[in-house]
Design a protein around this nucleic acid. Structure first.
Length: 430
DNA sequence: GATCCACAGGAAATTAAGGGTC
DNA sequence: GACCCTTAATTTCCTGTGGATC
């Protein structure tokens, strides 16, 4: 039997790999941000006028994931407030919102209200949006002195989710200053999507995109510098093999220069070495960590899927397993899905339109590959393929108790060698 | 060149749930 | 409790698409 108490005691006593593993987490802001001088300088030049009680321009930051956009804004905010304190001025209020989590216009306004005055929060739903907006104006007028920066991270998600209403909120936010007495609000939009501006309302672009800064992806040498800076604090002396950092940097640079991924990889490699009581993190642990992270990601994603998406994945699994070399198309998946939903008590059946949408989501997640292809007079449809091995898919699906008797099921539509749609039968495409 | 297929996918409408005000 | 609001999920309706076949 596993002795948890002695395990914890041994853990504390054993020789340490890490000095401070939190240094490798994305939330950690170091004293220096390597290879981001230009971007720091540009933002500093824009926001510096707050030190002379002027209002800076709104800013748009573009760049792929893990290029340091949020870290740079955080860094500038800390240093600006430090200077405010030194000059005896009122510090600027910085509100950071991630639009992936706070993804509607109403919630953005409610969240900002809550950040400004936590003692009087806006309910999560129920109020007309103009009432929330008026409340926000009151709060800012009462509680904010000087400048207030609202940082909207992943702003592209907000626009994609509910175009019209969210864009109205953005439009109102960028024009909020006309209704404020003394405080001034500035918006900093951060986006991973470079062409995202083309989806924005022209009214919002003209106000929001006053200044634009692009964050290029890091190359392997730059990622290596970042890792070395963090590793010095994160790991115990002699705990890292000299080949580990160049390897992590090279692997991350290959994947679009994502520094966050490189830091995750290095931390995970350290944790694996620690769990195996190794004294040194070697390149072998980096490869272990890479495999581990991929598997963990897929497993977690699959287990967290709603039942409907899981059922669609099960349908794709069954079709691919039994058809082998033949192509799996949307119609076939829908037929199998229809059969399975009838076998799960209490489960409702979605329309083909919705199922097609969920297949697209599975495609975006990387679990399956769905490409639209025309087959001439046999129509245009998605050709679907699992992106993970059948055995792994089976393992992930097995965790769903309602699929216990369905994993081995062979759909009737397969046995018939025809596909059934709108009450008519068609021969299979391939 | 016209026709046809099997959808894809956009847009609007509907439904349900959670919450508020009066 | 009636009515209003927002949000998310889903349905319904519709037009568009690309290439094999006629």
């Amino acid at each position: 039997m596993f002795d948890i108490d002695s395990y914890f005691r041994d853990f504390v006593d054993k020789e340490e790999i890490f000095q401070d593993r939190d240094v490798l987490r994305p939330e950690f802001i170091p004293k220096l941000l390597p290879h981001r001088d230009l971007q720091i300088q540009k933002i500093a030049e824009i926001v510096a006028c707050t030190l002379k009680n002027s209002m800076p321009s709104n800013i748009f930051l573009f760049g792929k994931t893990g290029t340091g956009k949020t870290a740079v804004v955080n860094y500038v905010s800390k240093h600006l407030n430090l200077q405010c304190r030194e000059f005896g001025m009122t510090e600027s209020k910085w509100i950071f919102l991630n639009c992936q989590q706070v993804n509607t216009g109403y919630r953005i306004l409610a969240k900002i209200c809550g950040e400004i005055d936590p003692s009087d929060p806006v309910p999560i739903a129920g109020w007309p949006i103009d009432v929330v907006f008026d409340k926000l104006i009151d709060k800012i007028n009462q509680q904010v002195q000087g400048n207030c920066f609202i940082v909207l991270d992943e702003i592209d998600v907000l626009v994609k989710n509910a175009r019209k209403k969210s864009q109205d909120t953005l439009y109102n936010l960028v024009r909020i200053n006309s209704r404020l007495k003394t405080a001034k609000v500035n918006i900093i939009g951060i986006s991973n999507v470079l062409n995202f501006k083309s989806e924005l309302d022209p009214r919002v672009i003209s106000s929001l995109g006053e200044e634009e800064i692009v964050f290029p992806a890091y190359n392997a040498v730059e990622i290596k510098d970042i890792l070395e800076q963090r590793a010095e604090k994160a790991f115990a002396p002699q705990a890292l093999d000299p080949e580990v950092i160049p390897l992590c940097a090279a692997l991350a640079a290959k994947e679009h220069g994502d520094a966050r991924k490189a830091l995750d990889l290095l931390r995970k490699a350290g944790e694996l070495a620690e769990r195996r009581n190794a004294k040194v993190v070697t390149p072998q642990y980096v490869y272990f960590a890479q495999d581990n992270m991929e598997n963990d990601k897929m497993k977690e994603y699959c287990e967290a899927l709603p039942l409907q998406s899981k059922t669609i994945l099960l349908s794709i699994y069954q079709m691919e397993r039994h058809l082998q070399q033949e192509a799996v198309i949307t119609g076939d998946v829908y037929n199998a899905y229809t059969e399975i939903t009838e076998m799960i008590p209490g489960m409702n059946r979605l329309t083909q339109r919705r199922v097609s949408e969920l297949i697209r989501e599975l495609d975006l997640s990387g679990m399956v590959n769905a490409r639209v292809k025309s087959n001439g007079r046999y129509g245009r449809t998605k050709f679907i393929k699992l992106n993970i091995p059948l055995s792994d898919t089976r393992k992930y699906l097995n965790s769903e108790s309602r699929f216990a008797d369905l994993i081995e099921y062979r759909p009737i539509c397969l046995r018939e060698k025809t596909t059934n749609l709108s009450g008519k039968k068609y021969r299979k495409l391939m």
